[in-house]
Design a protein around this nucleic acid. Structure first.
Lengths: 167, 167
DNA sequence: TTATATTTTCAAAACTTTTTGAAAATAAAA
DNA sequence: TTTTATTTTCAAAAAGTTTTGAAAATATAA
């Protein structure tokens, strides 16, 4: 297998993985493409490499910037914008965790807080509702705390802990 | 807010959360509905509560069984099948992690292993490819190890560690 | 200023996923 | 056996999401 084949394979699979994580294929593939590139790339280069339209490339590139995973660069004397990905995978993970926390964990925690004040009565149904939602909140709040902790902590803190745990 | 309202709110939000995790809305909502119910439910009851069709209820109920999150029960003298959810949230998490590992982590690790043998040359591109894919593999393999460890370990091991970490 | 390069937007088209509902299959009762 | 209850299947419809491509907006150069 040569470099192009390997790149192609990896980019395709990164797209599939993205899809099952609520990140659309083009966005994941652009991310992979920029991660793998030693230099920053223009929209046209990305369009060409991934065979996607300008609109698609532009929108998803900006979504990646929004997620804090990609940055713009202006080269002196050049009119085109260049894009490059955050390469430090610890930072990448932290950013993704942060965004998903905002989009997914906060909303469900809000709902859990809201329903925790409901007058559910003392029927079996009411009791079960209290019990299950309390359990769920307790787990989610632990993960939430972990993410907050990780976002604030030193570069390899989490990876070190992981390494120790898993050995 | 009364029980019905609270239930409705939670079920809806669980559906939204599911969607951004690659689990379809109906599947997530059925799961929530069974989690909240003190008794096992028939297909008809679930259809009625969630306002979904028989086919939809049947297919997703079976997907949940496939994921190991829901079980069938036969009541003596009754022809209808009853369904109930695994209530222990630690087990629920373990099951979900296990399934997602199978569907998502294994395939990307397979691709990473495959491309790691590619002849990428020693261009800047080739070197960057090696570096980035190696980094990604190293992180993913740590998570993978963590999941494997958690699946084998005692009921609250992971939660205890989480609690300690987060305090 | 006008011309040219580049980026952004967004309605419509293409594609994907989910849902429905009715027919087929299965299982239990009469 | 036949009848009735129940579950399963799956083609078609509906809904949702992504992508395209061309027009509008913006920015730089001449």
């Amino acid at each position: 297998m040569d470099l192009d084949e390997a790149k192609y394979k990896f980019i395709q699979e990164w797209g599939v993985l993205g899809s099952s994580w609520g990140i659309n294929r083009a966005m994941a593939q652009i991310h992979a493409c920029l991660l793998l590139s030693p230099d920053s790339k223009t929209t046209d280069e990305v369009m060409e490499e991934l065979k996607i339209s300008r609109g698609n490339a532009n929108m998803n590139m900006r979504a990646l910037i929004d997620w804090g995973l990609v940055f713009k660069e202006f080269k002196p004397g050049e009119r085109k914008e260049y894009f490059y990905a955050e390469k430090d995978l610890w930072t990448v993970m932290k950013q993704i965790a942060k965004e998903r926390r905002k989009r997914e964990i906060i909303p469900i925690r809000d709902v859990l807080a809201e329903v925790s004040t409901a007058q559910v009565g003392d029927s079996a149904e009411g009791k079960e509702f209290k019990k299950v939602t309390k359990d769920i909140d307790s787990i989610i709040s632990k993960f939430d705390g972990l993410i907050e902790m990780a976002s604030k902590s030193d570069k390899n803190w989490f990876l070190k802990i992981l390494s120790k745990l898993v050995k």
